[in-house]
Computed example of a mutant assay.
Amino acid sequence: MITIQTQLEKIRKLEKLGEMEKHERLRAARQKAGYRSAAAAADALGMSHSTYQAHENSNRNFDAEDAARYARRFKVTTDWLLYGGEMPQDGSDEYSPDEQFDHVDLADTPFDDIERFKTAYREAKRLEKAKIGGRGDRLSFARLVWAIYDELGGPS
């Protein structure tokens, strides 16, 4: 019998070798999240078994929207599912409110009021979480931040 821990060890070995494909990352995320089968994951996601299994078996590609949905359910990042890298350990690429801007140089942004930008960013995160349950695609999020910033009195 293969345990989840054994599966995670195999996944980490593959990651170190840089061999994981997108569909393999999807399977790894599902297993890490504790779903024993693709069918169980499909049920939890409210989608057809055949569609999910086709994504996991690489018979059908999945897009950023699908990846965001899977990432929320399996507690990994959309970026990791789509592009690889190191598997997120806690399923979160979020920062606490105090540190979320510490890793970014905001001086060269198109935003003339950094505090207004931070307010817009936090509001966009809140809305995104309320509407879709977590992180969506980055382009939509950036548009949302800009729209909120604009509403708060940003550049016209």
Rank of each mutant, 00 (worst) to 15 (best):
A39I: 15
A68V: 03
A33P: 04
D105R: 12
R25I: 10
L127N: 02
A28Q: 00
A142V: 10
H49M: 06
A39D: 10
A44K: 12
R135Q: 14
A107D: 12
K118S: 01
L26A: 14
F101P: 02
A33D: 05
E94V: 04
Y95A: 09
A29S: 13
K125H: 03
Q53E: 00
Y83A: 02
D66N: 11
Q53L: 06
A124Y: 00
E115T: 08
L127I: 06
G136N: 01
T77S: 14
G136A: 02
E24G: 01
L14S: 11
A39K: 15
H55N: 09
R72Y: 09
L127G: 03
S50K: 07
A42D: 01
E115F: 01
Y83S: 05
G46D: 00
A44D: 14
H103M: 12
D79A: 10
L17G: 12
R116H: 05
R143I: 07
G133S: 00
R60W: 00
A107F: 09
D93C: 09
D137H: 06
R30H: 07
G85E: 01
Q5I: 12
Y70V: 04
L26H: 01
A54G: 06
E99C: 12
R36W: 03
L17M: 14
D105P: 07
A64R: 11
G136Y: 02
F117A: 00
F111P: 04
R72H: 11
K13N: 13
Q5K: 12
F74K: 07
A68M: 05
A147V: 01
N61E: 14
V76M: 00
S156R: 15
F101A: 05
A54P: 02
T119K: 13
A64E: 13
Y95N: 08
